[in-house]
Simulated scan of single mutants.
Amino acid sequence: MSAVQNSVNFTMGVLEERMMLSGLHTVADIFCCCCGQIIGWKYESAHEKSQKYKEGKFVLERGRIVDEIDFSTEFYIDTRASMSDGED
């Protein structure tokens, strides 16, 4: 089962062709389930061979997911899998 199927905090939009800085890609925007705002995108497929490593990867835009970042302090996101409150 993929991470997307297990996630409950975002939804994916429709696939579309988008010209990115690194070339043409098929991507889907991802949206916050709480507020509905775009928080980033998922690379579904890359049209250039050198960009294939991006397929299936997600990009989260920090400015869209964290309010009032104080860049003078260290910022850390724990990316390890953990139990949710419902699994306690």
Rank of each mutant, 00 (worst) to 15 (best):
A46L: 14
A46E: 04
A46M: 14
A46V: 14
H47I: 06
H47F: 13
H47Y: 13
H47V: 04
H47T: 08
H47W: 15
E48R: 14
E48L: 13
E48V: 09
E48P: 04
K49G: 00
K49E: 04
K49A: 07
S50D: 04
S50I: 10
S50R: 13
S50P: 01
Q51P: 06
Q51M: 09
Q51S: 08
Q51T: 06
K52V: 11
Y53N: 03
Y53R: 03
Y53G: 03
Y53T: 04
K54D: 00
K54P: 03
K54H: 05
K54A: 00
E55I: 10
E55G: 06
E55T: 08
E55L: 10
G56S: 03
G56F: 07
G56D: 02
G56C: 07
G56Y: 04
K57E: 02
K57N: 11
K57T: 15
K57L: 14
K57W: 13
F58T: 01
F58R: 05
V59N: 09
V59A: 11
L60A: 04
L60R: 07
L60P: 12
L60S: 04
E61T: 13
E61A: 06
E61S: 08
E61G: 06
R62D: 00
R62F: 15
R62C: 05
G63Q: 03
G63W: 02
G63E: 05
G63V: 05
G63A: 02
R64D: 00
I65C: 05
I65Y: 07
I65M: 07
I65L: 09
V66E: 03
V66R: 05
V66L: 13
V66I: 15
V66Q: 03
D67Y: 11
D67F: 09
D67T: 12
D67R: 14
E68P: 05
E68R: 12
E68V: 08
E68K: 13
I69P: 10
D70R: 06
F71T: 02
F71Y: 10
F71A: 00
F71K: 03
F71C: 00
S72A: 07
S72L: 11
S72M: 08
S72T: 15
S72F: 14
T73F: 12
T73K: 15
T73E: 04
T73C: 05
T73H: 12
T73P: 02
E74A: 11
E74M: 12
F75L: 12
F75V: 09
F75A: 01
F75H: 06
F75D: 00
Y76C: 08
Y76S: 10
Y76M: 02
I77F: 11
I77C: 02
I77D: 00
I77S: 01
I77A: 00
D78C: 10
D78G: 08
D78R: 03
D78Y: 07
D78A: 06
T79I: 13
T79K: 10
T79F: 14
R80A: 02
R80K: 10
R80C: 02
R80V: 05
R80H: 05
R80M: 03
A81Q: 04
A81G: 03
S82N: 06
S82L: 07
S82H: 13
S82F: 11
S82P: 06
S82A: 08
S82T: 10
M83L: 13
M83I: 10
M83A: 09
M83V: 12
S84D: 01
S84F: 10
S84V: 09
S84W: 05
D85W: 15
D85Q: 15
D85A: 14
D85I: 15
G86T: 12
G86C: 09
G86F: 14
E87I: 02
E87F: 08
E87G: 01
